[in-house]
């Protein structure tokens, strides 16, 4: 059984409960009174790809629209501007719930395939956890040479690299970018320790949420 099927069975028709237990800050969803201030305050609202404003996502959760919510690109569009949090009359941590939903959808394999934010997050996470430090050079190159679906695309990489030439030179001059980073770059001393720590955190988190470590 896939992680997704397992959760679907465990929570049967109670998606709200699933969100409360599985999603970071999910226990806040029921506090939403559907006033609309968050949606009206969201700068990305109704941009292409932003199917449902936060208020609507919260209503859909209560209405049990599990597949629709978890496969939606909406929460991946959140820019963490915090406008909604500042104004919400019920003090819901909306930004964090959006990220929590995105993370959960990703865990279950329901996140949209083609999603730039998802790809960026994945690349960032892998890059940063490898050595304990972010490697700006390999990270940006990774961004340029991968297409929207995360596949290597040499032509696109060269094109983007040329477009960004000026910025790169500026960064080099200001010593914000170091070409020698290509050979591994700066890293933490105890990389093994970091990997063990992250693995332990992941195991603890999975246990707390009753998820299988996979």
């Amino acid at each position: 059984m896939s992680a997704n099927q397992e959760m679907a069975v465990r929570y049967k028709n109670n998606f709200l409960k699933e969100v409360e237990q599985q999603v970071e800050m999910g226990e806040w969803v029921k506090m939403c009174m559907q006033c609309g201030v968050c949606s009206g305050s969201c700068p990305t609202n109704f941009h292409p790809g932003w199917e449902h404003p936060p208020q609507e996502i919260f209503m859909m959760i209560r209405a049990g629209k599990r597949e629709e919510v978890l496969s939606s690109p909406s929460m991946w569009m959140c820019t963490s501007c915090y406008n909604c949090i500042v104004r919400c009359p019920r003090k819901l941590p909306i930004t964090h719930i959006m990220h929590g939903l995105a993370e959960y959808a990703y865990e279950l394999g329901l996140a949209p395939k083609v999603q730039p934010t998802k790809n960026l997050s994945k690349l960032f996470w892998e890059n940063a956890t490898k050595t304990g430090r972010i490697n700006e050079l390999t990270f940006s190159l990774g961004m340029y040479f991968k297409d929207a679906e995360g596949k290597i695309n040499i032509g696109q990489g060269i094109k983007k690299g040329l477009e960004m030439q000026k910025v790169a030179l500026g960064l080099l001059k200001a010593k914000r970018l170091n070409l020698f980073e290509i050979f591994g770059g700066h890293k933490c001393k105890d990389q093994k320790g970091i990997h063990a720590m992250l693995a332990k955190a992941y195991a603890l988190e999975s246990k707390r949420k009753g998820r299988h470590v996979g």
Binding site: C35, G36, V37, C38, G40, S41, N45, R87, P89
Partner: peptide, 18 residues
């Protein structure tokens, strides 16, 4: 619930929201 109010060139308040 109106999210915010701005003002247009004629001094009319404009209500924004969803």
């Amino acid at each position: 619930k109106v999210a915010r109010i701005s003002e247009d060139d004629n001094g009319n308040p404009v209500c924004w929201g969803v």
